[in-house]
Amino acid sequence: MAAPSRSDHVAVLLGNVLHVWGGLQYMDGEEVVLPSDEIWLYDLESGVWLIYFGGYGWKTVREISNYKSFTVDETSWVTNGRVFFRYWGWNNEVHVFEPDTATWTEPQTQGQPPKPRASHASATLGSKGYICGGLETQTIDIHCLDLVTWTWTQIEPLAPPLPMGRSLHTLTPTSHNTLFLFGGLSISGQVLCDGWEFDTVKREWREKPHRHKDKPRVWHSAVQGKDNDVVVYGGSRDYVLVMDTIAVLRSPSQSHCGDVLVFQSQPYSLTR
């Protein structure tokens, strides 16, 4: 059985198994879609967790009253045809998916979690996960979750410069202690093409020169490649999105991209 077409989802490759979760689901070529909470698996294997943070979705009134980690989007609440309401908004929850048992759990975290958000970027270095951006702020924030103790800490950079605040960007490991940030959407609505490296030990941001300054991106994907290159695929050069109280309408005029961008993070060997 094939998974329905979708975009803006999360995809993770664990061994030989592809896990696809969430996103905007398109049925029968329709342009009007709703966010999906489905997860699709291929050739399931055990031994690795998938960890998800935050996002945009809905809760009932009862669920919101019992939660302090959900910010209601007051412009986007709707009824679901019954006596209670579904409120849309942002959360800062952590959920873990165990492929071996196909079950979800919500670990009890410690420390001060990031503010509820969506369209943020995330990456993992060893036993620590990092959350970056996704809020309408002048400068970007970065938070660390220890995946052994499940403790949150906010990382305060020691000195400027700092990247501007953004969403719909990517964050990719380039070494055991560095992360590469690329693109995204600024709080003024500008599609960005700058690249930044964050040193998690020195707690410093450094803007990285690159040869793709003429290729701004949002909604793209990025992975760590050979010799710690960052490989970016797809996305859009423009941001055109209309949201109403029931469905998400994606404009067909968006400038989707099919090219691959490679960012070099270190000198290559003579062999390469």
Rank of each mutant, 00 (worst) to 15 (best):
L192T: 05
V148K: 13
E197Y: 01
K115M: 08
H95C: 09
L125T: 00
W77F: 07
F53A: 08
S65I: 08
K202R: 06
N228L: 00
K213Q: 12
L135G: 02
V10D: 10
Y130R: 03
R62K: 15
D214N: 07
S76C: 06
V242R: 08
W77D: 15
T109F: 01
S127D: 12
W40K: 12
P209C: 03
G47Q: 06
Y239V: 04
D73K: 00
R117S: 15
S122V: 10
T139W: 07
S253R: 06
V232L: 02
L168P: 01
V78S: 07
Q266R: 09
M27K: 15
S5N: 09
H120F: 10
R117G: 09
S265W: 00
P252I: 04
P252V: 08
Y130E: 03
H9V: 08
D229P: 03
K115G: 11
F70W: 03
D238C: 13
L181Q: 08
C257D: 11
V242A: 09
Q112R: 09
Y268F: 12
L168S: 01
T178F: 00
V78N: 04
M1E: 02
Q190V: 05
L34T: 15
L192P: 06
D28K: 08
V240T: 08
Y130K: 02
Y239G: 09
R62C: 07
R166D: 06
E106Y: 03
K68V: 10
S46Y: 12
Q25H: 06
G165K: 03
D37Q: 15
I246S: 14
E106H: 06
A159R: 00
P107D: 09
L168N: 01
V201T: 10
W58Y: 15
